Amino acid sequence: MEKIKIGSSDLEVAPINFGGNVFGWTLNEAESFSILDAFVDGGFNFIDTADTYAWWLNGTGGQSETIIGNWLKIRGNRDRVVIATKVGSETKEHGFDISKRHILKSVDESLRRLQIDHIDLYYTHYDDNKTPVEETLLAYDEVIKAGKVRYIAASNVSPERLTESFGLAEKKGLPRYVALQPHYNLVERADYETDYAPLAEKYDLTVFPYWALAAGFLTGKYRSEADLGKSVRGGGVKKYLNPKGMEILAALDQVAAKHQSTPASVSLAWLLAQPHIGAPVVSATSKRQLETIFAAPALKLDHEDLERLDQASNK
């Protein structure tokens, strides 16, 4: 499978990024191991998590990193995977925090849970909008020089603070972000395409969209309020049960039928056809769902398909 080079780094990843927020939440450790094994056996190598997953269960998080760490140790396959994790998210113990103190503490905690000696890609998960940008970059500079982190990336950071970070990195020789993880999918386009796509172009950022399937809405599983009880995430898609959402599902159904595929595969293939997109972040809780995900990189949408999906999702 053709790999994608992440920005200006030397990291190469397959075009699907497995979202580890399900580990320790909707999947226990044994189930997580089974999914991770199947993911890697399928030729994929990019695993995404965060220090706070799944904080909503215990207020602190760490479950996902712990499960991934146990899997890496037991399987002995650290050299086969690219590991991304994050810092800065809010929990019941603390608010958003990307201060130097918090980063230096958190990186060691993540390394301990993951049972590895370095993190390949370390994200600013959420900006606290108060720590000076230079302080955050100086903290990253320290952990990179210590060999604890290879490259840094950004997720929920404003365009203004991102732009400031690149200016400081160039001016003061500090680390620069090589990737961006925004909220982007067929039903959530405007913010990314207006505010962040120009930055991805300007700063050579590889983009890894999170909620790539809109919390499952783009799988076609939820088509009425009666369907919302099908999973623990059902409530999160209620906002998409509107005329625009239904038109997007109709377009997905049409394109999927044409290619003998599924709405989920088509949704991911649409993302992969967009500029700068490297590997959508997507989770699975069964091997059947994994097969749907695996089909996306091989699904090549033509101009007619893309136009149909664009027309439905741009309204």
Rank of each mutant, 00 (worst) to 15 (best):
L199Y: 05
N45Y: 08
I293E: 09
K258Q: 12
P175N: 02
I103K: 03
Q115N: 15
S265P: 10
V81D: 09
N314K: 02
G59N: 06
S158N: 07
Y222T: 14
H102G: 05
P132F: 09
F208K: 00
G43E: 09
G235Y: 11
I74V: 13
E93T: 07
Q311W: 07
W25H: 15
L72F: 08
I152D: 08
H94K: 11
E193R: 01
A284D: 01
V178G: 04
H259D: 07
A54Y: 14
S224P: 06
V207C: 02
P132Y: 09
F46L: 02
G173W: 13
W56V: 09
G69H: 10
G19Q: 04
Y240W: 13
E164P: 02
G59F: 15
K100G: 10
R112S: 13
R113F: 11
Y140R: 01
W56K: 02
L309S: 08
S267K: 02
F39L: 09
L309F: 05
L186E: 10
K145H: 07
E31T: 03
L213R: 12
E160S: 12
L272A: 09
P275D: 11
E134R: 13
F217Y: 15
G278L: 02
T26C: 13
V266N: 11
K3S: 08
Y151K: 04
G167D: 13
D204P: 03
V237W: 12
A295W: 10
A30R: 15
K239D: 10
R78D: 04
T206D: 06
W71N: 08
M1F: 14
F33Q: 11
K300G: 00
A153G: 15
L11M: 12
E65V: 05
N242R: 00
S231F: 11
E304V: 10
D41I: 11
Y151N: 04
A14M: 12
A215F: 15
T60H: 13
S165M: 01
L57P: 11
L306K: 12
L162K: 01
G173K: 12
Y184D: 01
H259A: 08
S99C: 09
G59R: 12
L205R: 03
R80H: 14
K315C: 10
P209E: 06
R233H: 14
D41G: 06
L218C: 04
L218G: 03
S110T: 06
N156D: 04
L241C: 06
G173R: 08
W71Q: 08
Y140A: 04
S32P: 14
L138Q: 06
S261I: 14
S265V: 10
R161Y: 14
Y222I: 08
A190F: 01
P198L: 00
S283P: 05
G59T: 04
L104T: 09
L271N: 07
A296P: 02
S110M: 00
A226Y: 13
E31K: 06
T66A: 11
G59S: 00
V82Y: 06
S99E: 08
P275V: 00
D51G: 04
H276A: 07
I103L: 05
V178A: 04
P243S: 13
R101H: 15
T262S: 15
V266R: 15
R176P: 02
I277P: 05
Q311Y: 03
